[in-house]
Design a protein around this nucleic acid. Structure first.
Lengths: 246, 246
DNA sequence: CTTGATTCAATGTCCTGACAAGTTGACAGG
DNA sequence: CCTGTCAACTTGTCAGGACATTGAATCAAG
């Protein structure tokens, strides 16, 4: 039951020791070399085995704990956590979420224009009255079926947007390439029923359920760089998240 | 511009020093005593001022970094981050989410019984065929308005559930008091339209939009301890999350 | 057989000390 | 005036040791 693990520690490498140790354990756990429920050896022995100090080994373990791979309990020891718990922790990661929703099979651009921001858009983006913004409407489809309608507002400072680039790379890739660095996003997920116009676009009957997603994305300076108001067919789309305690 | 801050460190307290320091800074930042963009003093001076060692102070700072309150750059210093970025980071915390949804104004218990788990419930909870589970239906209301219908399935091993306790404390508090330790939950949020029966219970007309939430909660051992299938009135409820890059 | 206190093992906390690495700004040289 | 070098400052990394706190297993007493 002991966590025997052969790993190479390169002391001349620029990557920190604790990171090397943590990465080695993470790989072993994800590959199954360290089965769930396995109890690791105690800190002292592990530190001795890998020729690092206890604080360094603890730093590595703390990283594993934060990543949800192991659980430590004082007086008990360190246990590898079950795969169900650690599965798809990254689902709540901003990058994956954006990439997933930005690089889907096909998106066609319905509208690409600059308009004077309405009150709600101004408020969401934190802009002054009368400011011009991009207004973008896209239709996302998968396997020929229309999945949802995406409406986005962006400040002009994000760069230049073209329909071709948007359809080829997705909104978020285009923005990132022009220097936008996403730091966080605030989302509100709700429900509504399809209007006649929406139903017509999506190829469903009016009154069908729709998932609504409103998202405001911020860069690392705290500036809002995108506001999105999306609706998706409820029978083809749902929003998944993983909530962690801590 | 220096981060002058008078805080009391209680060395005889059972709460760790680094936690006291971190909490003091967090409070100061949230209260505005430390304005955004403020550059904090260097670690050495701060450690000296609060009479702790540098590793201890670093531990506190690491906590602040993880919580998204400050940014540190080697060779530069530590800066308080903008309020928009840090706002409501805790929204994606499991505990708050559960507490919020578990201690609402009023919940009345419609059904509390033990049944043989159906296939979907068995699969979600990871139970053997034929296992008995709690089946719970509750109606949540706020200000006299019905908000949603919550249907839950729980393994019998969670303890004993009584209608009175559930209505008084909420499901999650009852479970936690009986030893369940929530570690994470997986949620799927979608949309549907109200059936006649649902509409009748919620006091709305059939065909109105509903937000659906399916949640599986796991404890630290990776065992599923709850499966919930909830619907909420879309005009009164929406699901908010904050996505972080990292 | 149950219950209680004891003991042991493990992680949690905290300290001092040292060096590495990145950033910035000042200073000297062109 | 411009530019490249260097020194000072700050955070990052790492070591080794000491004691506290918690959980569980062990053992003795009822």
């Amino acid at each position: 039951m002991a966590g025997e693990l052969e790993i190479d520690i390169d002391r001349s490498s620029p990557v920190p020791l604790y990171h090397q140790v943590a990465q080695a354990f993470e790989q072993a756990i994800r590959e199954g070399a360290l089965a769930p429920e396995t109890k690791l050896d105690n800190e002292i022995d592990l530190a001795k085995r890998y020729h690092v100090s206890r604080p360094t080994l603890r730093q590595a373990m703390d990283k594993l704990v934060r990543d949800g791979l192991v659980v430590r309990r004082r007086g008990v020891g360190t246990q590898v956590i079950g795969p169900r718990v650690r599965r798809s922790l990254k689902l709540s990661s901003l990058y994956n979420d954006l990439q997933e929703s930005g690089a889907q099979p096909r998106t066609s651009v319905l509208t690409l224009e600059t308009v004077t921001a309405e009150d709600e858009v101004r408020d969401r983006l934190g802009l002054a009255p009368g400011t011009e913004v991009y207004h973008l409407r896209r239709l996302r489809s998968i396997d020929g079926q229309c999945l949802g309608i995406m409406e986005n507002y962006l400040p002009l400072s994000v760069g230049t947007l073209t329909g071709a680039a948007l359809e080829r790379d997705g909104l978020y890739n285009v923005m990132r390439r022009q220097g936008s660095d996403f730091q966080m996003a605030h989302q509100t997920v709700g429900a509504t029923v399809a209007t006649a116009a929406q139903a017509d676009l999506l190829g469903i009957s009016p009154g069908s359920p729709l998932v609504t997603v409103q998202r405001t994305a911020l860069d690392s300076a705290g500036t809002a760089i995108e506001f999105g108001d999306h609706v998706y067919r409820a029978d083809l789309y749902s929003y998944e998240t993983t909530l962690m305690n801590h």
